[in-house]
């Protein structure tokens, strides 16, 4: 906690420099090459079910017979209540969980197990504490056997894009929670996956930091055009980021709707009638009737 408080000053500095980067719309060399990505990075789930076995022997179906296609370049947000299959859905695509039935395809390939073609930003803190910030961002490249000069070039690019160049040589423990999240985001983008998966990556951050990181994420997505599957429990976050939102509940896809709001999605856009209507629908799926605060107590959370 103390560490976080100490570095929050630094964090804010870097945030303003970050904002400057984005507004200047600077495109860097590495990103131009990343722009020419593989033409087909569609993610397709084909009748996928995942069944777990509890320790007492009960079978639990986390997701059941899900068909879903995420088109190349889409930013799909997955929302739903906790424990109803969001994370499992993401883990199946990541290859961390094998489907009990059905298959998962990326492009034309059926996938089994994890692979560097699908990068994950985890819910927990997966930044390696024993690697300096730059080494953390370059980890995936090192795994691939990319040579040091090339690695350093890419790492520098992404550290600058997320506004962390000044702490490249720091240990993660010297960073605030928000800065560590940026390291995680930069690490995944630096590895240049075809598909990017994010599991409530900013859930543990305070409101201001979360808003800033959403900005960083949007910026990187717009520059690289990656396919992104973004799991969140926050309806506002989904409205801000998504090109399309699905609602998962009880192991099924309950709703699937495009979000055609204009960008940048400022307060005005998010207050438009279309946004209000979408928000109302989404909240009702989560068991929250808008305008009825007392209803919160009646949900079985």
């Amino acid at each position: 906690m103390k560490t976080a408080r100490i570095s929050s000053q630094k964090s804010e500095d870097s945030d303003s420099s970050q904002a400057a980067n984005i507004s200047a719309g600077r495109t860097t060399g590495a990103l131009q090459s990343l722009g020419d990505r593989a033409p087909n990075a569609d993610v397709r789930l084909d009748a996928v079910s995942v069944t777990f076995m509890r320790s007492n022997g009960d079978r639990v179906t986390a997701i059941e017979n899900v068909d879903l296609t995420v088109k190349t370049g889409e930013l799909l947000c997955v929302i739903g209540r906790s424990g109803e299959g969001k994370t499992t859905l993401l883990n199946v695509v990541a290859g961390l969980v094998e489907p009990s039935e059905g298959r998962v395809l990326v492009g034309e390939r059926e996938i089994h197990g994890t692979g560097a073609d699908r990068g994950v930003i985890f819910q927990g803190d997966a930044v390696y504490p024993w690697m300096r910030v730059a080494d953390n961002v370059g980890f995936g490249l090192r795994v691939k056997g990319v040579r040091r000069p090339e690695r350093e070039r890419v790492v520098d690019e992404y550290l600058e894009l997320v506004g962390l160049s000044h702490v490249a040589k720091s240990w993660p423990r010297e960073l605030s929670g928000g800065m560590r999240s940026r390291v995680a985001v930069a690490s995944v983008f630096a590895n240049d996956p075809e598909v990017l998966l994010a599991d409530e990556p900013f859930g543990a951050l305070d409101y201001v930091t979360r808003r800033r990181l959403q900005g960083v994420m949007l910026d990187l997505w717009q520059r690289t055009g990656k396919t992104i599957l973004f799991v969140t429990h926050d309806v506002e976050e989904a409205l801000l980021l998504a090109t399309r939102i699905i609602v998962v509940g009880g192991g099924h896809v309950l709703d699937d709707r495009p979000v055609n709001l204009a960008r940048p999605r400022d307060e005005e856009v998010l207050a438009s009638s279309e946004a209000v209507e979408t928000r109302r629908r989404l909240l009702s799926y989560l068991g929250l009737e808008p305008g009825a605060g007392s209803a919160v107590g009646q949900t079985n959370e």
């Binding site: 995942v50 069944t51 777990f52 076995m53 509890r54 320790s55 022997g57 994370t87 883990n91 990541a94 961390l96 969980v97 094998e98 009990s100 994950v120 985890f122 819910q123 927990g124 599991d199």
Partner: peptide
């Protein structure tokens, strides 16, 4: 933590 839970069939087994 959930992220790395791997499925293992037949727990009683």
């Amino acid at each position: 933590m959930q992220a790395a839970s791997t499925v293992r069939a037949g727990n009683s087994h």
